[in-house]
Design a protein around this nucleic acid. Structure first.
Lengths: 129, 129
DNA sequence: TCGAATCGGTTACATCTGTAGTCGTCAACA
DNA sequence: TGTTGACGACTACAGATGTAACCGATTCGA
């Protein structure tokens, strides 16, 4: 585990993840802000958002910072770390750890755009350097 | 959705997935067989395996076929379809649908072996054809 | 200053998930 | 032929998850 130990890896649920997205996007937010921010994708009541936020706080995935009346919430885990962990999980689970197999599946499913292909080639060239 | 509509996409849980793995591997199996087959990774009682199997049956992810005394279970959804759907889910959720971004993350996390890189390059060359 | 709008915290509750025990049945063995 | 196993079906139950109402405190507008 060479990287910064990724904190106490408590799983983040789907709904919780949507909240994290909002937080990663727009720095420190109040519960109401988050509610508005995710309003597009999910139609949650403020109460729901507050529940998700407290759960994330217990999981130490976000930290609170008092701001007079209310709290401002800030992600405690980097989006990069989370995304990395999740990707790895999937690759391990579904493809025996072989990322190439994942790509093969996406390819077979025609799930790759020309841009995707271009970018991946660029990436691989970079890696090979 | 060009492929055979992937059935009523009921989510398959982690534990259920382990059972599916066994079934995908060794064709039609009895509950006891499955129990033995997954014995390596998970240490489940036969009862647990039976519960998971019935849930999978309700979800129409596996079908039963009477074999005298017992049932034989067979996957109803192709491993390829499942894996494809899950990969797509992840890419959509975490990378805004851009598979290249996934690869970028795996790369950054040094999660790609040389073999992975080789194979991906081969794949991409193939796709570009 | 008094009521309305906010806040965070607490409680609620149905569903899903992981894990397993119990029950009725039927078949095979003794 | 009666007993013991093996089976599937049903039941159980704690923890996670999705979704939200209620409550007490506070602040802000009238």
């Amino acid at each position: 585990m060479s990287h910064s130990d990724t904190s106490t890896t408590e799983r983040i649920s789907d709904a919780e993840y949507a909240v994290m997205e909002a937080l990663w996007e727009r720095a420190p937010l109040s519960a109401a802000d988050v509610c508005k921010a995710v309003g597009g994708s999910r139609d949650w009541s403020l109460a729901t958002v507050k529940t998700l936020l407290s759960r994330l706080v217990s999981k130490q995935a976000v930290a609170t910072q008092p701001d007079g009346r209310r709290f401002l919430y800030t992600p405690q885990i980097a989006r990069n770390d989370y995304v990395g962990t999740e990707s790895r999980r999937l690759v391990d689970r579904l493809f025996g750890g072989r990322a190439a197999t994942l790509v093969a599946h996406l390819a077979e499913a025609e799930a790759l755009s020309d841009d995707d292909i271009d970018e991946m080639e660029r990436l691989l060239k970079e890696l090979r350097k």
